[in-house]
Computed example of a mutant assay.
Amino acid sequence: MDPNTPWQSRDPLGEALHLLRMSGTLYCASEFTAPWGLGLPPLEDCLMFHVLTAGECWLEVSGHDPLLLRTGDLALVPHGQGHSLLSATDVAAVPLFDLPRECLSERYEIIRHGGGGAPVSLVCGAVRFDHPLARQLVRLLPSLLHVEAVNAEHADWLQGTLRFMRDEARAMRPGGETVVTRLADILVIQAIRAWIARDPAAQTGWLGALQDRQIGRAIGLIHRDPARDWSLVSLAEAAAMSRSAFAARFTALVGEPAMQYLTRWRMNLALGWLQEGEVAIAVLAERLGYQSEAAFSRAFKRCHGYSPGAVRRATG
């Protein structure tokens, strides 16, 4: 059983959402006055978000038309793509790291910038997801997610959270940056949940498979107990299906055979643990159900293209 998954459910999609635990790379309360422009650089493996707590601004992301954000709106750029926030679409963007900032903690800062016109306030952030299941879910998100405050399913709750966030960002009482970052994390998860609920794309592929009663059960068992000596037969039995029907349905929904998915899941877990630098390779092999370190290392290299030792040396 995965020691990093203390909570389990009969709902595989619920487990994936539960594991959307974020580690914040950067959080920023921004206070701008028109005209102003802010250029965000690409940030690999990061999801970037913007919560507009007051005013209006434009968001420009390559491949999308300029998007007008209004008070209470939330925008996610899930794949770390560079983008711009602007008071108007004809304003030049100043690179983020060229602007002066007030650092309140290691990961929280305040930026003030602009020409003295109409004010705008935002809370922005760049976060990473540590668990392989969370990272797999985030990879499936579109390149831009927009939650409009006026159309949000739970508008009252959203607005209450935003007011709380805005007040904390302005007052900055002791511990205020912690409150703001936790509220931002909740809003990000809510945006992802809203996308899953409303977008037809979330009902197909891996996400659709998680929501399938039989295939979802098999995927959940793989996630919770990767070390078990799973076979196509045992997974089919757990899903209450024949071997042939299970194999065909799993591949059709997930896009790869069940045993290939099992191996890839094990190797993604192994990569995460190796990057944390705390577990010996032999221990990892045992934890993931391999009879020898050599067998584990071969499987790891086939999956990732490099050896577990190379990861250990790079993170050591």
Rank of each mutant, 00 (worst) to 15 (best):
F246Y: 11
L210P: 01
I189W: 05
V91I: 14
D212R: 04
L158W: 04
L162K: 11
A294H: 11
A92G: 12
L52E: 03
P200G: 10
A126E: 00
V120C: 09
S143T: 14
L43K: 14
R264Y: 12
G205E: 02
A118N: 00
L207F: 07
L158D: 05
V279H: 03
V150W: 09
L26G: 03
C57W: 08
H223W: 09
I189R: 14
C124R: 10
L284G: 06
L274K: 08
W195Q: 06
G289R: 02
R101W: 10
G175H: 10
R298I: 07
D11G: 08
V233M: 04
H154N: 02
L187C: 03
T181L: 13
L104T: 02
L210A: 03
L210D: 02
E153K: 15
R213H: 12
W195T: 13
S105V: 11
E148C: 14
W195F: 08
T5I: 08
A152G: 02
L47V: 01
W230Y: 10
S292R: 04
S292D: 01
L183R: 10
Q203N: 15
E153H: 07
G272T: 08
T5W: 01
A227I: 07
G55S: 06
V51E: 02
S121K: 09
E44L: 15
D45Q: 13
A16D: 00
R173M: 15
L232G: 14
A239W: 01
W206K: 05
M22W: 04
W206H: 03
G37K: 08
L158N: 03
G114Q: 00
I192M: 02
S62E: 15
H131A: 10
L68P: 10
S143F: 13
A134G: 15
S143A: 15
G117I: 02
A126Y: 09
A285R: 06
V61R: 06
P226Q: 09
V311I: 11
R166W: 15
E106D: 07
W58K: 06
E148S: 14
L69K: 11
A118T: 01
A171T: 12
A169L: 03
E177C: 13
T181V: 07
L20M: 09
L69M: 04
A248W: 06
K301F: 05
A126T: 04
G289W: 02
R217N: 13
V94L: 14
G205K: 02
